[in-house]
Design a protein around this nucleic acid. Structure first.
Length: 466
RNA sequence: GGUGGGAUGGCCGAGAGGCGAGGCUCAGGACUGCAAAUCCUGCUACACGGGUUCAAAUCCCGUUCCCACCUCCA
């Protein structure tokens, strides 16, 4: 059994073999911290978090780098709008992102480098590129990569240089060729800048990732990830810069698809993006994560409020089984990975197929609860919990347990039991009216009552819209 | 113009030549004082037109429609 992954570069699924046996190095293009995250951003984080958890489970030592881009055109623009310094804006949104990742149980990366902390590495890389005759500084403070000097270009988007539409930004007077792209941008007045051999300026968009991947993962590493929209130009240009410097760079490219609404990509410019915070007021973090992680990472995920609610309800069914299993076996279920789930994950992270195995375990597990078959209950619960732990949705994970305000649970339990005792008395009298009145009163505050063979059981429902 | 992705039952969503993924909804049943939860049964779909094959949702040819990238994007 071995992990198979789809490589965007070769466009085929291949057996994954790391450069160093037993270890995997991953670089994921993280956020440009210019605004709060929408669910598309965190889908990427979740997809690669699942990859990371699966690789770790499979016995690999994973080094996971996810950068923060904290200097860029939009950051400068938005800082002007918000009337705060650009660095304050960047840090503000970096914290919002960090918080969103935490609320969705996305593990912190091994290291999370910021672009502005690696100016030195970028300058070194650019100098190397100039020395090798792959880049040029025309004297206006900019430095461009000479794409015609490359042995190869556009290898993963499979486009031809001549077919590209020329960007309409006009400012091409210093370029040898319109397709050349900026490694470094000369400072305009009022903009932040760093001193360089070519004058004061700031980084181009792509150079940071080449520099940071090199700094933390070396000249070659296993997996480079990001959203599908980064294939061109961002990743092509990263490859161009790194290869031109003599680095083999990434061995495998993985790209997650988007979250769409009404068939259209969620994007800032369209204004149809859904903020993470917005949705966290509708469903719990664990439910949002379950939803965003439920589609295969290369499939578009079509968002609708109904789809989210349906998915959340589906998760609650799974969660409910685990909690009932815990009550019966008297402790948290073990964490085990079933063969079927493993086979699904090994197949390019086929989460939907994995979900089907969970559904079957929950169904037969519930039947086992009815039959009071403890062996099957604990076995199924262990496999379900194992699968959920890979998906980052294990309800017994410390990250989520805080959600439950556990310290209050016992107090509530005492109160609810008082009321239930009264209801039981009414039921013995066959005074259904009183019994139902008590049940209705309890459910009105967001606690639902189920009569089971072993007596009444209560759970917090939080109402429809939380 | 170039490069990709897609169209699957009421809905969501997998699969990728034969053996009905799965979920949700709905209908019926079991359990229940009634609910809720749970279980059981039912609902034979793959954009369109050709073709290949013993066999096609899956392969080939053609057509229609949708989305995206080539400017900032996860």
């Amino acid at each position: 059994m071995s992990i198979h992954l789809y490589d965007s570069a070769t466009r085929e699924i291949r057996v994954f073999k790391p450069l160093t046996p037993g270890a995997v190095s991953i670089y994921l293009c993280g956020a440009t911290v210019q605004a709060p995250p929408h669910i598309g951003h965190v889908r990427s984080g979740i997809n690669f978090d699942i990859l990371r958890r699966w690789l770790t489970h499979s016995g690999f030592q994973v080094t996971f780098i996810r950068n923060v881009t904290d200097i860029d055109d939009k950051i400068l623009q938005n800082a002007l709008k918000e009337e705060i310094p650009w660095w304050a804006l960047a840090l503000k949104y970096e914290r919002v992102f960090t918080n969103a990742y935490k609320e969705l149980n996305v593990l912190p990366p091994t290291y999370e480098p910021r672009a502005t902390g690696h100016i030195t590495q970028m300058i070194e890389l650019i100098e190397k590129l100039i020395l090798r005759g792959k880049a040029y500084a025309p004297g206006n403070g900019d430095v461009y990569l000479d794409v015609h000097s490359l042995d190869e270009y556009l290898t993963i988007s499979k486009q031809k240089l001549a077919d590209l539409l020329v960007s309409p930004d006009g400012d091409q007077s210093f370029k040898k060729n319109p397709q050349d792209f900026a490694l470094w941008k000369g400072a305009k007045s009022g903009e932040p800048s760093w001193p360089t051999p070519w004058g004061a300026g700031r980084p181009g968009w792509h150079i940071e990732c080449s520099a940071m991947a090199h700094a933390y993962l070396g000249e070659a590493f296993d997996i480079h990830g990001g959203g599908l929209d980064l294939v061109f130009p961002h990743h092509e240009n990263e490859i161009a810069q790194s290869n031109a410097a003599g680095y083999p760079f990434a061995k495998l490219w993985m790209h997650n698809a988007w979250v769409t609404t009404a068939g259209e990509k969620m994007s800032k410019s369209l204004g149809n993006s859904l903020r993470v915070n917005e949705l966290l007021s509708k469903v719990r973090g664990i439910e949002l994560r379950w939803y965003l992680g439920s589609a295969q990472y290369r499939s578009m995920l079509e968002y609708s409020p109904e789809a989210l609610e349906e998915s959340a309800a589906g998760f609650r069914r799974v969660e409910n089984f685990l909690k009932r299993a815990k009550e019966i076996i008297g402790q948290n279920p073990e964490i085990k990975i079933s063969k079927d789930f493993a086979a699904a994950m090994d197949n390019d992270l086929a989460v939907p197929e994995g979900l089907a195995t969970i559904a079957e375990l929950v169904r037969s597990g519930n039947a086992a609860i009815t039959a009071n078959d403890k062996k099957t209950i604990s076995e199924n619960a262990a496999y379900v919990r194992g699968a959920l732990s890979i998906l980052g949705c294990d309800p017994f994970d410390d990250n989520w347990v805080g959600d439950e305000s556990n310290d209050l649970t016992e107090i509530v339990d005492g109160l609810v039991k008082l009321a239930l005792a009264e209801r039981e008395e009414a039921r013995i009298r066959q005074d259904w009216q009183s019994a139902d009145r008590i049940r209705d009163a309890i459910s009105a505050v967001g606690i639902s009552i189920e009569d089971t063979s072993s007596g009444p059981r209560w759970t917090i429902t939080r109402g429809e819209n939380r």
